[in-house]
Simulated scan of single mutants.
Amino acid sequence: MAKKKTKDPQTMSFLDHLEELRWHLIRATTAVLIMGIIAFIAKGFIFDVLIFGPRNADFPTYRGLCWLSQLSGMDNSLCFEQSPFSIQSRKVAGQFSVHIWTSITAGFIAAFPFVLYEFWKFIAPALYENERKYSKGFIFISSLLFFLGVLFGYYVITPLSLNFLGSYQVSELVLNEFDVDDYIRLVRVSVIACGLIFELPIIMYFLAKVGLVTPEFLRKYRKFALVIVLILSAIITPPDIVSQIIVAIPILILYEVSILISKIVVRNNNKKQKKVSVT
């Protein structure tokens, strides 16, 4: 049986590119659904261990804060003894709906490297041969940054938010009884948002590659970036200074890394232009 010939990207029409994109999206979506089905089956681990883990007093973040509190002579002021809120479901299909959407979210997180791989395969034909060699490194670094962001959102943002919002009361007459959908939405937004924010160096790499961003531009507007980071930290964290600083620090580090990456990209582009002009 004859092998199907791969179409030349240079001779492909707009509709051919759309067809190619459609198959990449189908494969990426299939991977997300497969991982989502696995997450759906592993309901006990996903919910009891992962989702509801940050409301337990023995969660690693709370143990670490308690240790720091005792080490700094603050007694047990930062220790988390028991959950200050309860979780309930007030809709008929509430728990089933939560189960479905949580499984899809978990499927997306687990399948992220493959989704990224399909995205890379779609844009790879438009790149130079030497740029395609970095595909494995690109997928690995992007996935690593995303998972680091997910872990940061899960172990830092989520417990800080739950501890603050769960214990906050306008009056002792008002009890904190959170709907399960709202609780999981907070966890989901914290985790996904941090995962995407940690992709900042990759985004800056591509912006520098096409000439939209330069290291001089990033240095010039560093002060404005600091303000934006603080505003962003205030949005995704509880309204207390400590939490905002904890979130702002890694984002600022990523911004400085982005400056270094853009500097390397611009330097390499200049070298290529010099070689072309000499030849």
Results as ranks from 00 to 15, higher is better:
residue 129 E to G: 04
residue 116 L to D: 00
residue 90 R to T: 14
residue 103 S to D: 02
residue 163 N to L: 03
residue 140 F to C: 07
residue 93 A to Y: 13
residue 120 W to P: 01
residue 123 I to V: 15
residue 204 M to S: 10
residue 99 H to L: 15
residue 102 T to A: 08
residue 195 G to Y: 09
residue 204 M to V: 03
residue 100 I to N: 05
residue 156 V to M: 07
residue 180 V to A: 12
residue 139 I to A: 09
residue 108 F to A: 09
residue 91 K to D: 04
residue 146 F to H: 03
residue 101 W to A: 00
residue 116 L to I: 14
residue 107 G to Q: 11
residue 164 F to R: 00
residue 133 K to T: 12
residue 211 G to K: 01
residue 110 A to I: 14
residue 162 L to M: 09
residue 124 A to Q: 10
residue 107 G to P: 15
residue 136 K to A: 06
residue 171 S to E: 13
residue 125 P to S: 07
residue 189 V to L: 09
residue 145 L to R: 04
residue 193 A to C: 14
residue 141 I to A: 12
residue 158 T to A: 12
residue 205 Y to L: 09
residue 125 P to H: 09
residue 186 L to V: 06
residue 131 E to L: 06
residue 93 A to H: 11
residue 210 V to K: 01
residue 131 E to T: 10
residue 129 E to Y: 12
residue 194 C to R: 04
residue 159 P to C: 11
residue 93 A to T: 08
residue 136 K to L: 14
residue 109 I to W: 08
residue 97 S to A: 07
residue 128 Y to F: 11
residue 192 I to T: 09
residue 185 R to H: 02
residue 128 Y to N: 05
residue 174 V to C: 04
residue 161 S to I: 02
residue 165 L to D: 00
residue 206 F to E: 15
residue 118 E to K: 05
residue 113 P to F: 05
residue 163 N to W: 04
residue 189 V to M: 08
residue 161 S to F: 00
residue 164 F to D: 08
residue 142 S to E: 06
residue 161 S to E: 06
residue 96 F to N: 04
residue 128 Y to W: 05
residue 207 L to P: 00
residue 133 K to I: 11
residue 147 F to W: 08
residue 158 T to L: 14
residue 111 A to D: 06
residue 94 G to K: 11
residue 122 F to E: 14
residue 153 G to V: 05
residue 166 G to S: 06
residue 141 I to T: 15
residue 203 I to R: 00
residue 109 I to T: 05
residue 110 A to K: 00
residue 175 L to Y: 01
residue 110 A to N: 03
residue 176 N to T: 07
residue 202 I to C: 02
residue 133 K to E: 14
residue 123 I to C: 10
residue 169 Q to G: 10
residue 182 D to H: 01
residue 118 E to Q: 15
residue 103 S to K: 11
residue 198 F to M: 02
residue 106 A to G: 04
residue 205 Y to N: 06
residue 108 F to Q: 01
residue 132 R to F: 05
residue 157 I to Q: 02
residue 197 I to K: 09
residue 135 S to I: 04
residue 210 V to Y: 00
residue 191 V to Q: 06
residue 97 S to F: 14
residue 123 I to L: 08
residue 170 V to E: 05
residue 151 L to V: 11
residue 176 N to Y: 13
residue 124 A to N: 09
residue 94 G to V: 02
residue 105 T to D: 01
residue 142 S to F: 12
residue 113 P to T: 03
residue 192 I to C: 10
residue 174 V to L: 06
residue 132 R to N: 08
residue 98 V to E: 08
residue 91 K to V: 00
residue 127 L to P: 01
residue 99 H to I: 10
residue 196 L to H: 13
residue 118 E to D: 07
residue 160 L to P: 07
residue 90 R to L: 08
residue 150 V to Q: 09
residue 193 A to W: 07
residue 130 N to V: 07
residue 168 Y to Q: 10
residue 115 V to C: 12
residue 202 I to T: 13
residue 210 V to F: 01
residue 136 K to W: 14
residue 190 S to Q: 11
residue 144 L to V: 15
residue 194 C to S: 15
residue 138 F to Q: 11
residue 208 A to D: 02
residue 134 Y to N: 04
residue 131 E to R: 05
residue 153 G to L: 06
residue 154 Y to N: 09
residue 107 G to K: 12
residue 140 F to A: 14
residue 150 V to H: 11
residue 208 A to K: 02
residue 118 E to Y: 03
residue 105 T to Q: 02
residue 172 E to M: 15
residue 149 G to C: 07
residue 143 S to M: 07
residue 143 S to T: 15
residue 153 G to T: 12
residue 94 G to W: 04
residue 105 T to L: 06
residue 116 L to C: 02
residue 140 F to W: 09
